[in-house]
Design a binder for these strands. Structure first.
Lengths: 137, 137
DNA sequence: TTGATCTCTCCAGCCCACTAGAGAGTCAAG
DNA sequence: CTTGACTCTCTAGTGGGCTGGAGAGATCAA
């Protein structure tokens, strides 16, 4: 089989990206990846930009986005022009959420530092009615 | 039943924290929460600091920690003194991971901003062999 | 005492994101 | 033309984190 210059079979995509074949097929099924078509025998053909997509997926996923959310963003990307109002709205919300998440990670960071130093991170005998950890940190 | 001054039944914990009863029982089963004991009839009694714990759990979870990881941190906290070497090691690793995660969130933030502006976030026709999105951003 | 309203345990099922395996077809090299 | 590696689809199972329901007991107000 002569694979066209820029196309890759799923196996080499898997090998180069470190993502299992099964997972790649699963992502394609969900619509996160697109193939350039198939060989006559039905083998998937991927173009080289699949790696950028896989990388985006991996990264976004580690940040807590679901595969469906990621698909939405990839679809916006694929559209190539300004997203419609509804999508802009959802993007803006996500932005806010991401900001909050960054802040919370910074809090967690400090808490882990305290644990390392042998300090408590939660009040041991608190009579607080509203959780103090948020204000406290 | 006369509940002692500082103790709460699971229902009011659920109501005040917004976390379902089932989930609270589940957390206790996993060892994330401890009760102050039970009533004669077997009802769980929680002290007021359960809210701080629940809050910590919720927050940590949103940041991508598993319940088992969270339990580990709570156990360190409960111990109250300097964690042993092995645990310090794991804490330090987690700290590094958190730092990386913060950086990646900042990248994602910029990417979402670009999507909002109608710009592409992935190369459309890239011949890159190594994913460009990381360097690109 | 008798309801209404908790709460208990136990077991089953759901959703997400895979992952394993079976059985069959495809491809390049020799 | 065969061999061996690769790929296909399909079905089913896994693990984490809940969530629902059954059936039974506990608590409390009237």
């Amino acid at each position: 089989m002569v694979v066209q210059e820029e196309t890759k079979l799923i196996g080499s995509v898997a090998k180069e990206s470190g993502i299992p074949i099964k997972t790649i097929r699963y992502y394609e099924e969900l619509g996160l990846l697109k193939t350039m078509g198939r060989t006559e025998g039905g083998f998937r053909l991927f173009s080289a930009d699949v790696f950028a997509r896989l990388n985006f997926i991996k990264r976004a996923q580690k940040l807590g986005l679901s595969l469906l959310e990621i698909r939405e963003f990839l679809e916006i990307h694929d559209q190539g022009d300004l997203p419609c109002d509804r999508v802009q709205e959802s993007l803006r919300n996500k932005l806010i959420e991401v900001d909050r998440q960054i802040q919370e990670l910074q809090i967690l960071r400090r808490e882990l530092g305290r644990l390392l130093a042998g300090e408590a991170i939660l009040p041991q005998n608190s009579a607080a009615t509203i959780c103090p950890i948020i204000e406290q940190v």
